[in-house]
Design a protein around this nucleic acid. Structure first.
Lengths: 209, 209
DNA sequence: CGTAATTGGTACATATTGTTATAATTAATT
DNA sequence: AATTAATTATAACAATATGTACCAATTACG
């Protein structure tokens, strides 16, 4: 759990995964140190903003030197909660569920796929990612038995809210929501939406500008 | 092309697809009129903000009456550019490409899937969505011949920039980017990113708060 | 030890959002 | 037809949030 003196705004939080990505790349290229100015040029931000962003979590840089890539990456990894492991399930074994299940990156960062669920008899029993798809009837039992932290929703709009309510009732505290609707969940549950339709429409808007 | 007196901020633009979604739902439920107060309660915004948002594009409401759902929906549809049609291609016929290709919503809103491309010999020739997957070797010819407006990138990180450059060189002006990297494109090209890894990391961050 | 580089933090500027108030307009009621 | 209630459009303002500029303090390094 975080204990930062300053409260951090959502816009800053949304930049953290980007920092993490760039720092990971730098480390892979054996770059040991980087200045805010260099990182800014790389990421298309201002050096000032980067220093401000990073400093809201703590003084990871060294004056006159810059930032140690490895240390900063580890720090951000921890801030993002990626030093812990998470058990996750995918609900909806269609193409989108399939796609997510095969994201190697998830496992590499400690998000472990424990199960995939669907209602379609043709899908149940097939292998998706590393697991065999189970029927939704088994969901309640499974979540209780496996301490699931995150549910990834890839279900049709019509059943999205129902499924969200079901999993949060069972104690799931995080939802990555690919279903194109706004979910209503308890206060202690966090939802991150990936709304592909909205993204497409934003694109068509921008095309007309 | 838009001709609005006021310039509209990106935060407002990002809300437009939401308005469109809610208005579409209202219309499906045969609701003919709605006040800013009612819509605000539905969407979790303030009435004032809704009036301000909508008014930045024109006076679609009627004093003493509210907004006509059908008219407002049509207006937003046009603002979003969804009164035109767009030819699109998907690059990368893996699970993600598959998932997008089967989104019925895209076609319904005038975004027509013209082709799917991949390099994998096992994927080329299979049917994805409504089309047969072609080899990337045919991409250049195809884009020229079919006036492609939008390219949907579902390729691995390593080749994302290369493909983006290729399609923009051929005149594609919009990219919906599912590949987890930041693309560099010409000024007149618009990119909308859907970064699933970033979304997951935002979720793990929020879980630790 | 001196110089150049660089952060941390503060102050400032800009953008966004929310609130309040009011005139204009419409619908509903009597 | 007149009155009342509802509601938007618009402006002004306040409160936040976000981004930028600056500079003292610190460090690296020759």
């Amino acid at each position: 759990m975080h204990r930062f003196s300053k409260k951090v705004s959502m816009t800053v939080v949304k930049r953290l995964p980007k920092y993490y990505q760039y720092l990971t790349d730098l480390q892979l290229n054996d770059i040991e140190k980087i200045s805010s100015r260099e990182l800014a040029s790389l990421m298309g931000l201002t050096a000032s903003q980067i220093r401000q962003d990073l400093n809201s979590f703590g003084g990871y840089g060294q004056q006159g030197y810059g930032y140690n890539v490895g240390e900063l990456r580890e720090a951000i990894k921890e801030i993002l909660g990626l030093d812990s492991e998470y058990n996750c399930i995918i609900i909806g074994g269609g193409n989108m569920g399939h796609a997510i299940a095969n994201y190697e990156r998830f496992k590499r960062e400690g998000v472990i796929l424990k199960g995939v669920f669907d209602v379609d008899p043709l899908t149940v029993g097939t292998v998706v990612g590393s697991v065999v798809v189970k029927h939704m009837d088994e969901l309640d039992e499974f979540i209780k038995a496996n301490e699931i932290d995150i549910a990834i929703l890839c279900v049709p709009r019509e059943v999205g809210q129902k499924v969200a309510t079901q999993v949060t009732d069972l104690g799931v505290k995080g939802i990555l929501n690919f279903s194109p609707l706004d979910l209503t969940v308890p206060n202690d549950v966090v939802v991150e939406n990936v709304n592909i339709t909205d993204s497409l429409f934003t694109l068509t808007y921008l095309l007309g500008e």
